[in-house]
Protein backbone atom coordinates (compact mmCIF):
# COMPACT_ATOMS: atom_id res chain seq x y z
CA UNK A 1 0.00 0.00 0.00
CA UNK A 2 1.38 3.42 -0.94
CA UNK A 3 2.06 6.15 1.62
CA UNK A 4 -0.69 8.28 0.07
CA UNK A 5 -3.20 5.48 0.44
CA UNK A 6 -2.23 4.97 4.10
CA UNK A 7 -2.45 8.73 4.79
CA UNK A 8 -6.02 8.96 3.47
CA UNK A 9 -7.29 5.68 4.91
CA UNK A 10 -8.90 7.35 7.92
CA UNK A 11 -10.91 9.63 5.63
CA UNK A 12 -12.57 6.92 3.60
CA UNK A 13 -16.15 6.04 4.52
CA UNK A 14 -16.63 3.15 6.91
CA UNK A 15 -17.99 0.25 4.83
CA UNK A 16 -21.77 0.19 5.05
CA UNK A 17 -22.25 3.45 6.98
CA UNK A 18 -21.98 5.76 3.96
CA UNK A 19 -20.56 8.61 6.05
CA UNK A 20 -16.90 9.46 6.51
CA UNK A 21 -15.18 8.35 9.69
CA UNK A 22 -14.74 11.76 11.37
CA UNK A 23 -18.46 12.43 11.05
CA UNK A 24 -19.37 8.95 12.27
CA UNK A 25 -17.04 9.47 15.23
CA UNK A 26 -18.70 12.78 16.10
CA UNK A 27 -22.16 11.20 15.90
CA UNK A 28 -21.06 8.37 18.24
CA UNK A 29 -19.65 10.98 20.65
CA UNK A 30 -22.87 13.02 20.49
CA UNK A 31 -24.94 9.94 21.22
CA UNK A 32 -22.87 9.37 24.36
CA UNK A 33 -23.58 13.00 25.19
CA UNK A 34 -27.32 12.30 24.87
CA UNK A 35 -26.91 9.75 27.66
CA UNK A 36 -24.84 12.18 29.72
CA UNK A 37 -27.39 15.00 29.56
CA UNK A 38 -30.27 12.55 29.99
CA UNK A 39 -28.74 11.44 33.29
CA UNK A 40 -28.60 15.08 34.42
CA UNK A 41 -32.12 15.94 33.24
CA UNK A 42 -33.54 12.65 34.55
CA UNK A 43 -31.98 13.21 37.97
CA UNK A 44 -33.33 16.77 37.99
CA UNK A 45 -36.88 15.71 37.17
CA UNK A 46 -36.87 12.93 39.77
CA UNK A 47 -35.40 15.17 42.49
CA UNK A 48 -37.97 17.82 41.67
CA UNK A 49 -40.85 15.37 41.98
CA UNK A 50 -39.40 13.98 45.21
CA UNK A 51 -38.71 17.38 46.82
CA UNK A 52 -41.04 19.98 45.24
CA UNK A 53 -40.53 22.29 48.24
CA UNK A 54 -36.99 23.02 47.00
CA UNK A 55 -38.26 24.71 43.84
CA UNK A 56 -40.08 27.98 43.11
CA UNK A 57 -42.26 29.16 40.23
CA UNK A 58 -40.48 30.28 37.04
CA UNK A 59 -39.03 33.79 37.16
CA UNK A 60 -39.14 34.13 40.94
CA UNK A 61 -35.46 33.32 41.51
CA UNK A 62 -34.01 32.81 38.01
CA UNK A 63 -33.78 35.65 35.50
CA UNK A 64 -35.97 34.41 32.63
CA UNK A 65 -35.74 37.52 30.36
CA UNK A 66 -31.91 37.49 30.50
CA UNK A 67 -31.78 33.77 29.75
CA UNK A 68 -34.34 34.12 26.96
CA UNK A 69 -31.93 36.66 25.44
CA UNK A 70 -29.11 34.13 25.85
CA UNK A 71 -31.24 31.48 24.17
CA UNK A 72 -31.77 33.93 21.32
CA UNK A 73 -27.97 34.27 21.04
CA UNK A 74 -27.40 30.52 20.93
CA UNK A 75 -30.08 30.00 18.26
CA UNK A 76 -28.47 32.82 16.24
CA UNK A 77 -25.08 31.11 16.58
CA UNK A 78 -26.59 27.92 15.17
CA UNK A 79 -27.75 29.70 12.04
CA UNK A 80 -24.35 31.42 11.59
CA UNK A 81 -22.68 28.01 11.97
CA UNK A 82 -24.87 26.37 9.37
CA UNK A 83 -24.29 29.39 7.10
CA UNK A 84 -20.53 28.81 7.49
CA UNK A 85 -21.02 25.22 6.38
CA UNK A 86 -23.19 26.24 3.44
CA UNK A 87 -20.57 28.84 2.43
CA UNK A 88 -17.71 26.34 2.22
CA UNK A 89 -19.95 23.80 0.48
CA UNK A 90 -20.25 26.48 -2.21
CA UNK A 91 -16.47 27.08 -2.06
CA UNK A 92 -16.77 30.58 -0.60
CA UNK A 93 -13.87 30.89 1.86
CA UNK A 94 -14.46 34.55 2.77
CA UNK A 95 -18.05 33.84 3.77
CA UNK A 96 -16.88 30.80 5.71
CA UNK A 97 -14.48 32.95 7.72
CA UNK A 98 -17.10 35.63 8.34
CA UNK A 99 -19.77 33.20 9.56
CA UNK A 100 -17.29 31.28 11.71
CA UNK A 101 -16.15 34.52 13.36
CA UNK A 102 -19.78 35.49 13.98
CA UNK A 103 -20.41 32.07 15.58
CA UNK A 104 -17.38 32.47 17.85
CA UNK A 105 -18.42 35.97 18.96
CA UNK A 106 -22.03 34.95 19.64
CA UNK A 107 -20.95 31.74 21.41
CA UNK A 108 -18.51 33.66 23.62
CA UNK A 109 -21.30 36.17 24.37
CA UNK A 110 -23.50 33.31 25.56
CA UNK A 111 -20.79 32.18 27.99
CA UNK A 112 -20.21 35.79 29.11
CA UNK A 113 -23.90 36.31 29.87
CA UNK A 114 -23.98 33.02 31.76
CA UNK A 115 -21.05 34.21 33.92
CA UNK A 116 -22.88 37.50 34.61
CA UNK A 117 -26.00 35.51 35.51
CA UNK A 118 -24.01 33.26 37.90
CA UNK A 119 -22.43 36.26 39.64
CA UNK A 120 -25.84 37.93 40.08
CA UNK A 121 -27.51 34.73 41.33
CA UNK A 122 -24.63 34.03 43.72
CA UNK A 123 -24.96 37.56 45.10
CA UNK A 124 -28.68 36.94 45.67
CA UNK A 125 -27.94 33.81 47.73
CA UNK A 126 -28.81 31.29 45.00
CA UNK A 127 -25.95 28.91 45.71
CA UNK A 128 -25.44 25.14 45.32
CA UNK A 129 -24.11 24.69 48.86
CA UNK A 130 -26.44 23.33 51.55
CA UNK A 131 -25.52 25.87 54.25
CA UNK A 132 -25.02 28.91 52.03
CA UNK A 133 -28.30 28.69 50.07
CA UNK A 134 -30.49 31.69 50.83
CA UNK A 135 -32.29 32.77 47.65
CA UNK A 136 -34.89 35.42 48.50
CA UNK A 137 -36.20 35.94 44.99
CA UNK A 138 -35.45 38.63 42.43
CA UNK A 139 -36.00 42.18 43.68
CA UNK A 140 -36.67 41.17 47.28
CA UNK A 141 -34.63 42.52 50.23
CA UNK A 142 -31.74 40.27 51.27
CA UNK A 143 -32.98 39.64 54.81
CA UNK A 144 -36.23 37.97 53.72
CA UNK A 145 -37.16 34.30 54.02
CA UNK A 146 -35.37 31.87 51.67
CA UNK A 147 -37.36 30.62 48.69
CA UNK A 148 -36.84 27.05 47.55
CA UNK A 149 -33.93 24.98 48.78
CA UNK A 150 -30.35 23.93 48.04
CA UNK A 151 -31.40 21.13 45.66
CA UNK A 152 -32.67 23.87 43.33
CA UNK A 153 -29.26 25.57 43.34
CA UNK A 154 -27.27 22.33 43.11
CA UNK A 155 -29.20 20.94 40.13
CA UNK A 156 -29.29 24.34 38.40
CA UNK A 157 -25.52 24.81 38.54
CA UNK A 158 -24.80 21.17 37.64
CA UNK A 159 -26.94 21.28 34.50
CA UNK A 160 -26.20 24.78 33.25
CA UNK A 161 -22.55 24.49 34.31
CA UNK A 162 -21.93 21.32 32.30
CA UNK A 163 -23.71 22.89 29.35
CA UNK A 164 -21.66 26.09 29.69
CA UNK A 165 -18.48 24.00 29.73
CA UNK A 166 -19.59 22.37 26.48
CA UNK A 167 -20.22 25.78 24.90
CA UNK A 168 -16.82 27.02 26.10
CA UNK A 169 -15.06 23.97 24.61
CA UNK A 170 -17.03 24.51 21.40
CA UNK A 171 -15.88 28.14 21.20
CA UNK A 172 -12.24 27.03 21.65
CA UNK A 173 -12.64 24.35 18.96
CA UNK A 174 -14.27 26.92 16.65
CA UNK A 175 -11.29 29.25 17.14
CA UNK A 176 -9.00 26.45 15.86
CA UNK A 177 -11.30 25.86 12.89
CA UNK A 178 -11.40 29.61 12.21
CA UNK A 179 -7.57 29.86 12.26
CA UNK A 180 -7.37 26.93 9.85
CA UNK A 181 -9.94 28.62 7.58
CA UNK A 182 -7.82 31.79 7.52
CA UNK A 183 -4.95 29.67 6.20
CA UNK A 184 -7.18 28.27 3.45
CA UNK A 185 -7.39 24.88 5.14
CA UNK A 186 -10.94 24.20 3.93
CA UNK A 187 -12.07 23.90 0.35
CA UNK A 188 -15.25 23.06 -1.52
CA UNK A 189 -14.02 19.47 -1.80
CA UNK A 190 -12.59 19.02 1.71
CA UNK A 191 -14.36 20.71 4.62
CA UNK A 192 -14.96 17.85 7.02
CA UNK A 193 -13.67 19.87 9.99
CA UNK A 194 -16.37 22.52 9.48
CA UNK A 195 -19.15 19.93 9.27
CA UNK A 196 -17.93 17.98 12.31
CA UNK A 197 -17.60 21.04 14.59
CA UNK A 198 -20.96 22.20 13.23
CA UNK A 199 -22.59 18.97 14.40
CA UNK A 200 -21.16 19.52 17.89
CA UNK A 201 -22.28 23.15 17.96
CA UNK A 202 -25.85 22.39 16.88
CA UNK A 203 -26.04 19.61 19.46
CA UNK A 204 -25.03 22.06 22.19
CA UNK A 205 -27.80 24.38 20.94
CA UNK A 206 -30.27 21.49 20.92
CA UNK A 207 -29.41 20.59 24.53
CA UNK A 208 -29.87 24.21 25.60
CA UNK A 209 -33.33 24.32 24.02
CA UNK A 210 -34.35 21.43 26.31
CA UNK A 211 -32.51 22.80 29.38
CA UNK A 212 -33.99 26.29 29.01
CA UNK A 213 -37.49 24.86 29.06
CA UNK A 214 -36.94 22.42 31.93
CA UNK A 215 -34.76 24.58 34.21
CA UNK A 216 -36.16 28.07 33.59
CA UNK A 217 -39.73 27.78 32.33
CA UNK A 218 -41.30 24.80 34.13
Amino acid sequence: MSHAAIATMDRSPMPGMKVYNNKLGMWVFLLSEVMFFTSLIGSYVILRFAHPEHWTDPGVVLNVPLTALNTFFLICSSVTMVKAFAAIEAGNQKALQMWLLATIIIGASFVGIQVVEYIALGGEGFLPALDAYHAVGRGNPHGGPALGGPLYGATFYAMTGFHGAHVSLGVIALIFVYIKSLRGGYTKENHQGVEVIGLYWHFVDLVWIILFTIVYLI
Binding site: V82, G198, H202, D205, L206, I209, F212
Partner: peptide, 14 residues
Protein backbone atom coordinates in the same frame (compact mmCIF):
# COMPACT_ATOMS: atom_id res chain seq x y z
CA UNK B 1 -42.56 22.96 21.99
CA UNK B 2 -39.00 22.30 23.22
CA UNK B 3 -38.85 18.87 21.58
CA UNK B 4 -40.21 20.28 18.32
CA UNK B 5 -37.48 22.94 18.35
CA UNK B 6 -34.86 20.25 19.08
CA UNK B 7 -36.31 18.21 16.19
CA UNK B 8 -35.94 21.17 13.81
CA UNK B 9 -32.29 21.67 14.85
CA UNK B 10 -31.46 17.97 14.44
CA UNK B 11 -33.29 17.58 11.12
CA UNK B 12 -32.23 20.77 9.34
CA UNK B 13 -29.13 22.22 11.03
CA UNK B 14 -27.52 18.84 11.77
Amino acid sequence: MAFYKAYLVAMYYM
